[in-house]
Amino acid sequence: MAKKRSRTDIIHDMLMYTHSKPNGVKPTHLMYKANMSHAQMQQYLVDLEENGFMQRVEEKSGQRILITEKGILYLQKIIEMKTFEEAFGL
């Protein structure tokens, strides 16, 4: 059975996918790619926006989500932490 993802894992997946798309992502795509429910994603998005890691932009085609510079730095720290834990077997 797959291990339950931690809050950090979910944030990592969301930031990673958003970072891979320089023009931003649609909320539905992010929801599927990060493997989350709609309610769960909205909750995380609000948190990430409040902390300045992501921003929502309104376009003609609809809403798009972009990662901020602060979000990139946060993602970098999470990647480092994951590598550190993997290396030391923590």
Binding site: M16, H19, Q76, K77, I79, E80, T83
Partner: peptide, 14 residues
């Protein structure tokens, strides 16, 4: 290497 790995992974994504 752990420190560099984080930066590298971010740069490679772009």
């Amino acid at each position: 290497k752990i420190r560099i790995h984080g930066k590298k992974k971010i740069t490679n994504r772009h």
